[in-house]
């Protein structure tokens, strides 16, 4: 039975089984089992070095796991890469690259184009519409290193939007952005969820969790808890994840 016919809603958006990732013999993720249902807005939380980014990269196949497997809508990611829109950390690219905001957003269309084909006027229209949606239309022609951190982040989000995927993976989109951008991102995340998309976001701020997300995955090398935010973010779970005092201080 194909994913597009009946029973689609029952297949998990992302399913991770027995996943272990190690950098030089040191495990970063240890025996992770995660099943993320379709249509949730999920935060991945945990202390620094918990393996949050590594998990995202392992789902995308950017890192080879030592053990375990990942399925996206029931299939290995490599045969499914148009199903996932990816927003990497802002610091992972060189913003001095000679290009403008519109061109960066257009890169989100490359997956649909495949090898050799160039973006056409339809792709430019979609890219402009996405820039409009994140409030960046007037900066379309701006050189990317002349944008503020928040503006750069919104360009990245616009780029993910034009990928038009059912699943989104975002790595710390809130880091170093201004309040205006934070609100814009939250609105966008909620709009994506309303459209029935599955959104997985690496998140740092425990205080905004209940406000922004409906599900959470608490991680610290091992999986600590997964489920609705209110069930996951308990004092006991946070103690396990962050170690005693920090957790109580945060709540």
């Amino acid at each position: 039975m194909s994913a597009s016919s009946s029973g689609k809603g029952n297949i998990p958006a992302i399913e991770v089984r027995d996943l272990t990732v190690a950098y030089r013999e040191k495990p970063v993720l240890w025996d992770i089992d995660v099943s993320i249902p379709q249509g949730v807005l999920l935060a991945v939380v945990g202390p620094n070095g918990a393996g949050k980014t590594t998990l995202i990269k392992a789902i995308l196949g950017l890192i080879k796991p030592a053990a375990g497997q990942v399925r996206v809508l029931g299939k290995p990611y490599s045969r499914h890469n148009r199903m996932v829109g990816y927003v990497p950390q802002r610091g992972s690219v060189d913003w001095d690259f000679p290009t403008n905001a519109l061109d960066v957003v257009l890169m989100g269309r490359y997956g649909h184009l495949g090898w050799f084909r160039r973006p056409g006027s339809r792709d430019v229209e979609l890219a402009m519409a996405a820039l409009e949606q994140v409030g960046m239309a007037e900066f379309a022609q701006r050189q990317i290193n002349q944008l503020s951190g928040g503006q750069q982040q919104r360009v990245f989000l616009a780029r993910a939007l034009v990928q038009d995927a059912p699943i989104y993976l975002m790595d710390e989109p809130f880091v170093g952005v201004d309040a205006k951008t934070e609100t814009a991102i939250v609105d966008l995340l909620k709009a994506l969820r309303e459209q029935g998309k599955t959104v997985v976001v690496v998140h740092h701020d425990l205080q905004t969790l209940t406000e922004y997300y409906d599900w959470a995955l608490l991680l610290n090398v091992r999986k600590i808890a997964l489920g609705p935010v209110s069930e996951v973010i308990t004092e006991d779970n946070l103690k396990v994840a962050y170690g005693g005092r920090t957790a109580i201080g945060v709540l």
Binding site: L60, N81, Y86, F97, T99, W115
Partner: peptide
């Protein structure tokens, strides 16, 4: 520009 995105898009 972004080898992570390139890989995730199958290039």
């Amino acid at each position: 520009f972004d080898s992570g995105l390139a890989a995730s898009l199958g290039f």
